[in-house]
């Protein structure tokens, strides 16, 4: 510092600006390509939501039934000291409810108000889903679309993207409000 010759504020600023724009451009192009999603099975079909909603995936522990609440709240369990609900969202999506066997998992998700556990028939891990394969939900397609954003058509079949924002804000998830 202090040496006027080696310190050209203009050059440094230009450089910084370029780096900034470059970083932005990189981020954008990346985001355009894929969406990081947790993929799982509900009602025999493959579903997904963005990973930032998920806080963990666990095997199904003993669920304690809660009296006098709607049937989609299947019980509560002990998540390291926090009492957490296990919910079966399949009826909300108009899906059949096959028995959840040994491959069953609980996807712990964090909404604005509470953390809750979504029961799934199986979990398939995190995948980067390509936006080029994405089709937004078609209106009037006959199925329950309230909580869907669209689907990804992949080689191994389609993956439906859930609208977690809408799902987690639905009063049906809150005991006594359905």
């Amino acid at each position: 510092m202090g040496d006027d010759n080696s310190y050209d504020i203009r050059t440094i600023l230009t450089q910084m600006r370029e780096e900034y724009w470059q970083a932005l451009a990189e981020e954008e192009s990346e985001a355009k390509e894929t969406l990081e999603c947790l993929v799982f099975t509900l009602g025999g079909k493959r579903y997904a939501f963005e990973t930032h909603y998920a806080s963990e995936v666990i095997r199904i522990p003993k669920l304690v039934r809660v009296p006098a609440v709607q049937s989609l709240i299947r019980g509560i369990f002990n998540l390291r000291g926090e009492i957490t609900a296990a919910i079966d969202i399949r009826p909300m999506l108009g899906l059949p409810q096959p028995e959840i066997g040994p491959t069953g998992r609980i996807l712990v998700v964090r909404g604005d108000n509470f953390a809750t556990g979504i029961l799934a028939e199986a979990a398939h891990g995190v995948q980067g889903l390509c936006f080029d394969d994405f089709e937004p939900v078609a209106a009037g397609s006959g199925i329950k679309t309230q909580f869907l954003r669209g689907h990804f058509s992949l080689e191994e079949g389609s993956v439906i993207l859930l609208d977690m924002e809408a799902l987690l804000a639905d009063p049906e998830l809150v005991a006594g409000e359905a």
Partner: peptide, 21 residues
Amino acid sequence: GKQFRNVRFLFGATILGDGNP
């Protein structure tokens, strides 16, 4: 928690010796 703020019959939960609520 908030998911059960309107629940009837319950005051809370505890965790028993076997780790289950």
